[in-house]
Design a protein around this nucleic acid. Structure first.
Lengths: 126, 126, 126, 126
DNA sequence: GTGGTCTAGACCACT
DNA sequence: GTGGTCTAGACCACA
């Protein structure tokens, strides 16, 4: 799995990393139950500090995306049941994106198509 | 237009403010060409520092959502032509949201429905 | 408020600190809405690193005991409504303590009295 | 006696194991003087390392919950005389739990009732 | 001024 | 080997 960080971005490194791992999980690049690289390993590969990776893992764990097994390190969490209702937070985020899209002149059908294309790349989808 | 800020949120005040204004524009609560309150006025109404509002307006201007006229203050920018292609940035943001939704078990049809409902509230949509 | 840390304890510093602050809140030593010392200040007073205090505050915030206001630092969170049901986690912890007490030969009435005495010191209780 | 370990928990395995055995003793699932399974046996049953079980037994012995006889393995220690005073450590733990309960809005009578319910399940109680 | 982030390097607990 | 904790010291974003 390829991870690229922008060191001069506004988004903190640990958050960029978190986002890329979340996408990786959803796209199946990181399979369910698969082991993530060790904190040290990943830190070295990316050329960043172990603490930063540590924070990322702690965050992902807290959000339920991964589980940390004392014996074997971090693994992708088992997937949730399908058919869940969208979170309120997710709805808010989506509303903001759609607002931006609408103002920028992207019409609804184009937007829905885009959603479809992105969903098609997700392995988590049934 | 009602703006509510969470002082104890992770998102900076200026960004919360920016988001709410963007949504306000998209939903038509702030009409095209309509004048925004003055920096001082808005800061006082919200009980925050003028610097914060200033930063918000500067950001909105830079993003093209408003235009700032020295004589008449800030106005909502004229709307873009419809039929535009989604920005790369927007696509990235959407991808992250969809990834999260997929992992949380929200299926595509539910997601698309939600998009439709949100779009329906946008006045900018043709 | 007096905080004492055991540097050679098994419990991590940030957790000891968290516990003492929680007790401080419950006992009213830290009043509702009261400001906590700044991260730097507290770190200096206790002779520990700012990161450690930072982690404590982040934890307390995540657990809902404090709120962090970007403008004025950390404050004690407004108190919850009374009459809540005990958490499952709390029940588990209590079960373990009672098990230990029972084995050590503390009988129920003595234990209940002790609870009463501790509750009497809590300002949060109505 | 059923023991279930959470591999992805924050609490170390040896501590989870210790806790469950303590509760087992208090509830009478493990009777006074009863033999505990051998280290090797228990480790195999639970699918964990023998070192972990070893550590648990050493801890339980040091705390006085079990006695280890070279010939007969580990046994539940004879019960203490009733009417003992609560340990200082136990009082501290209880104080922390009550503090949390109070902040979360659990009132004293509810808490005392809960204690009663838990005590009712303990066989050690007179 | 505040909290948030990051680094480099160290030590410890757990299995 | 793993993740977790801590330090000392630095810089940045926010208000």
């Amino acid at each position: 799995m390829i991870i690229s960080l922008e060191l001069d971005s506004e988004t903190p490194l640990y958050e960029q990393l978190r986002n890329q791992i979340v996408i990786g999980i959803a796209m199946g690049t990181l399979a369910e139950q698969e082991r993530l690289p060790s904190v040290r390993q990943l830190a070295e590969d990316l050329g960043i500090n172990t603490m930063t990776v540590n924070k990322t893992y702690a965050l992902l764990k807290q959000e339920g995306y991964i589980v940390i097994d004392r014996r074997h390190g971090a693994k992708v969490a088992p997937r949730a049941a399908v058919g869940q209702e969208p979170t309120e937070q997710l709805t808010h985020q989506l509303q903001l994106i759609i607002a931006q899209a609408a103002i920028q002149g992207v019409d609804q059908s184009r937007f829905q198509t885009l959603c479809g294309q992105i969903f098609a790349k997700m392995a988590y989808q049934t």
